[in-house]
Measured scan of single mutants.
Amino acid sequence: KKKIKIYIENENGEKKTIEIEVEGDIDEIAKELAKKYNVKIVKIEP
């Protein structure tokens, strides 16, 4: 498992940072999160 930080922006332009532990393809997981929460991924840090 890797701990990563995902910087997101919602439709109101509010920026947030999510810190999660992931296993597998980080890009795939980030895309799923973006779709699920309707946010834009700004940056992903390993």
Rank of each mutant, 00 (worst) to 15 (best):
T17K: 04
I26K: 01
K1C: 12
N38F: 06
I20Y: 05
E32N: 10
K43E: 05
T17P: 01
N12M: 12
E19T: 12
Y37M: 11
D27C: 14
I8A: 06
I4F: 15
G24E: 03
K3L: 12
L33C: 08
G24P: 01
V39R: 00
K1H: 08
E9P: 01
K31S: 11
K40S: 08
A34H: 04
I29F: 15
I18M: 10
K16C: 15
K43P: 02
G13I: 00
E23T: 11
A34D: 00
D27R: 09
E19M: 07
D27I: 10
E32Y: 15
D25E: 07
K43F: 12
K2S: 09
E19G: 01
I8Y: 15
V39H: 05
I6N: 00
E11M: 12
I8T: 11
V39A: 14
I41M: 03
K31T: 08
G24S: 04
Y37Q: 03
N12P: 01
G13S: 03
N10T: 15
K5C: 09
I20D: 00
T17D: 03
I6D: 00
I44G: 01
I8S: 02
N10C: 14
E45G: 04
K15V: 14
N10K: 13
N10E: 10
E19R: 04
K43V: 08
K43T: 06
G13T: 01
K15E: 11
E9Q: 10
E23C: 14
I18S: 00
E23G: 06
T17Y: 10
E11W: 15
K35F: 07
N12S: 10
K35I: 09
I41P: 00
K3A: 07
E21N: 07
K36G: 01
N10A: 12
V22C: 10
I4K: 01
I29D: 01
I6M: 07
E9C: 10
E19A: 05
D25C: 06
E32Q: 12
I29V: 09
P46V: 15
I6V: 10
Y7S: 05
G13H: 05
L33I: 13
E14V: 11
A34K: 07
K35W: 08
E28S: 09
Y7K: 02
V42M: 07
E28L: 12
E19Q: 07
V39E: 01
K35E: 06
K15D: 05
I29C: 10
E28D: 10
V22I: 11
N38A: 07
G24C: 06
I18C: 11
T17M: 12
K2M: 15
I4W: 15
K35A: 07
I8L: 11
E14C: 13
I6Q: 00
N12D: 10
K3W: 15
K36T: 06
A30W: 08
D27E: 11
K2Y: 15
E9S: 06
E19W: 08
V39W: 15
I18T: 01
P46D: 12
N12H: 13
E45T: 07
I29G: 01
G24A: 05
N38L: 04
K35G: 03
K3F: 15
I29W: 13
V22F: 12
K3G: 05
K40Q: 07
K31D: 07
E11S: 12
K15F: 14
I44Y: 06
Y7Q: 05
E9R: 08
E45Y: 07
K15H: 13
I20Q: 02
V39G: 14
E9L: 13
K15I: 15
D27M: 13
E28H: 08
K3N: 06
I41D: 01
E45C: 13
E28N: 07
I6S: 00
T17V: 14
P46W: 15
I4G: 02
G13M: 04
N38I: 02
K40G: 03
K16G: 14
Y7I: 09
L33A: 01
K1N: 06
N10V: 07
D27P: 04
G13R: 03
G13Y: 03
K2V: 14
G13Q: 04
E9D: 02
K2A: 11
I29A: 11
K31R: 14
I29M: 08
I8P: 00
L33R: 00
I18H: 02
E21D: 10
K5F: 11
K5Y: 10
V39P: 01
I18E: 01
V39T: 04
I20L: 13
E23H: 10
K31Y: 10
V42T: 06
N12I: 11
I20N: 00
I20F: 08
I18D: 00
K36P: 00
A34T: 05
I8D: 00
I26E: 05
N12G: 07
Y7C: 06
Y7P: 00
G13F: 04
N38Q: 07
A30N: 01
V39I: 12
Y7D: 03
K3C: 10
E28Q: 12
K40A: 06
E14F: 12
I4S: 02
K1Y: 14
K35N: 06
V22T: 10
V22P: 03
N10H: 13
V22G: 06
I4P: 00
E28A: 11
E45P: 02
N38M: 06
I41N: 01
D27H: 10
V39M: 13
T17L: 07
P46H: 13
I44M: 05
E28V: 10
K43H: 09
I20W: 07
K31P: 01
K1G: 08
K43D: 05
V42L: 15
Y7L: 09
E21M: 11
K35C: 07
I20R: 02
K15R: 13
V42H: 04
I44W: 12
E32G: 07
K5Q: 06
N38T: 04
D27Q: 09
I26T: 04
V42N: 04
N38S: 06
E21I: 12
K5P: 00
K15N: 09
E45R: 04
I4D: 00
A30L: 15
K43I: 10
K1F: 14
E21T: 08
I8R: 00
K1A: 09
I26R: 02
I20C: 11
I20K: 01
I29E: 03
K36Y: 13
K3I: 10
L33Q: 00
I41E: 01
G24H: 03
N12L: 13
K16P: 01
T17G: 03
E45V: 11
K3Q: 07
E14K: 07
I4Y: 15
K35H: 05
N38H: 10
V22Q: 05
K40N: 06
V42G: 01
L33P: 00
I29L: 11
K43C: 09
K31E: 08
I26N: 02
